[in-house]
Nucleic acid binder design. Structure first.
Length: 467
RNA sequence: GUCCCCAUCGUCUAGUCUGGCCAAGGACACCGCCCUUUCACGGCGGCGACCGGGGUUCAAAUCCCCGUGGGGACGCCA
């Protein structure tokens, strides 16, 4: 048994987005690959913005993707005592101090520093205050960071990155209401949860030296760190919930398959030679940090869509039929997973990129559709009425109604007209499906069944004659 | 502004650590052709990149330096 322990630590302030899922996936894969443990920690210390709905949505998203966690999720709001105790310890040891600067004062000084072109940083005003001077005032607890020196982050992916400690800050550990802040809880939690590998997005690289200082002050052993490249939005820059469509569950709801999402995500910043298609299971055997790149990538919905098309095309019809049912229901079609539905699905696997598309384009399997006016004008011409009737009669006389016997009938009809098959097939397509685009017409008829085909052809010819 | 990271086709990337096999490979997108009852799928072909400049070397996409560009971080958010 390996001793690798990784985690994904989302803050439940919204849905699970592409970036979070990417981070979760890499952590999960690294743990699974190394026979380790993957944990979930819900960073809900920001009570204002955290919601139980977001927690549910995030867990659902992960489960949908097939990313499984090994223990019940940890909730930071349930661990407050631990944070306060650790902060108290630092205070007692002189490694932290009380600061009575108010948010307004800090804001003003920060702005002034910026105006002067300096790095906004806490000016350490309260660093040497005596206890009597903080008496009766609201205070926060600040970390007494070393004043000088260099902290080196030994990053698994980027090598050694040096930070001048002077650039760092006396960060706030406990707010005036006693709640802990991010950099502090992360350290306390990662250490107490036994996290061995902290793998996260590049945007946290700057936080790492601060956290290392905290590890040292608290006397915790250091985990290994690895920062992988961020996923940028379509316009470049951080993914934006406004510009980019990045909610994982929204993709699910639009008919994307989890394996497509996983496959898409894993190839962002990671590669395995020229291979493009990976299953989750396969990944747990080959994923390696060594093949993780360094430069950011850009979210490309087109590529995700294409991958989804691939998985729809190659997926099992039975499973897709099952997944399709709710999409049909949304369109007012009550269907059950069945061999028949699987057969219907099969005719659309090569021409649907999402389950939504499949549901949209297959409605005529479930109920007749009025022909598109333009298609009707072009194909449902008067001379088609007798043809439809003739073909319907021949279908009725067939001993077996299969693509092969259907094809024979249509070919004969075309020959009699001295025309190509298309001359006959296209009008029939319109009569049967209401449009000019569909799967192969013989397959469509097989799915529809002889009775329904005859009914629709008869109905169409009657309509033609009426006009 | 300060600090940090990054830099190969439009996009995802292989190649960079361990220089020569790279007149740079694959995939998506795009364009053309073929297949074909429509649409797709598929097949074949095309377009298309080593950010710039110096250096090191017999040899640089690969190593070093400087520019430039992009990104991230600088909260009593996480």
């Amino acid at each position: 048994m390996s001793d690798v322990v990784t985690r994904f630590a989302p803050s439940p302030t919204g849905y699970l987005h592409i970036g979070g899922a990417h981070t979760a996936l890499f952590n999960w894969l690294f743990a699974r690959r190394n026979g380790g443990t993957f944990l979930l920690r819900i960073e809900d210390t920001d009570r204002e913005r955290s919601t139980p709905e977001a927690v549910k949505e995030i867990l659902e998203g992960l489960a949908w993707l097939g990313i499984t966690w090994d223990e019940d999720p940890f909730f930071q709001t349930e661990r407050m005592e631990r944070y306060r105790a650790e902060a108290g310890r630092l205070l007692a040891e002189g490694k932290a101090y009380r600061c009575v600067c108010t948010p307004a004062e800090l804001d003003a000084r920060r702005e002034a520093a910026r105006a002067r072109g300096e790095t906004p940083r806490y000016d350490q005003k309260c660093r040497e205050l005596r206890p009597s001077q903080t008496e009766g005032k609201a205070f926060v607890i600040r970390f007494r960071a070393p004043l000088s020196g260099t902290t080196i982050v030994r990053d698994l992916l980027r090598g050694d990155v040096a930070f001048d400690v002077g650039e760092l800050d006396d960060l706030i550990l406990l707010r005036s209401d006693g709640s802990p802040t991010y950099n502090f809880v992360v350290v306390v939690d990662d250490a107490s949860m036994g996290i061995t590998h902290v793998l996260r997005g590049d945007d946290h690289l700057n936080n790492t030296p601060r956290q290392i200082l905290l590890y040292e002050a608290l006397g915790y052993p250091l985990p290994r760190f690895g920062h992988f490249p961020l996923i940028h939005g379509i316009g470049g820059g951080k993914l934006s919930k406004r510009q980019d469509d990045v909610s994982v569950t929204s993709y699910r709801d639009r008919g994307y398959l989890p394996e497509a999402m996983i496959n898409y995500l894993v190839r962002l910043g990671w590669s395995h030679g020229d291979q493009e298609i990976f299953s989750l299971e396969e990944l747990t055997g080959i994923f390696s940090l060594e093949n993780v790149g360094k430069s950011p990538s850009r979210f490309d919905p087109e590529r995700l869509l294409r991958l989804n098309a691939h998985y729809i095309k190659t997926g099992s019809p039975e499973r897709l039929a099952r997944l399709l049912v709710p999409f049909l229901k949304k369109r007012g079609i009550e269907a059950e997973p069945s061999p028949w539905l699987a057969k219907a699905v099969r005719t659309f696997q090569e021409r649907s990129r999402t389950l939504s598309e499949m549901a949209d384009s297959s409605v005529y399997y479930f109920r007749p559709k009025d022909p598109d006016p333009k298609a009707a004008a072009k194909f449902l011409t008067p001379e088609m009425a007798p043809l439809f009737e003739e073909i319907a009669r021949e279908f009725a006389a067939l001993s077996e109604f299969t693509p092969a016997t259907i094809e024979a009938v249509l070919h004969r009809a075309a020959e009699n007209m001295g025309a190509k098959l298309g001359k006959v097939a296209q009008p029939i397509r319109v009569a049967l499906t209401g449009g000019t685009v569909s799967p192969g017409i013989f397959e469509v008829m097989e799915v529809l069944g002889r009775e329904e085909v005859i009914r629709r052809l008869t109905h169409s010819s009657a309509t033609i004659r009426k006009n």
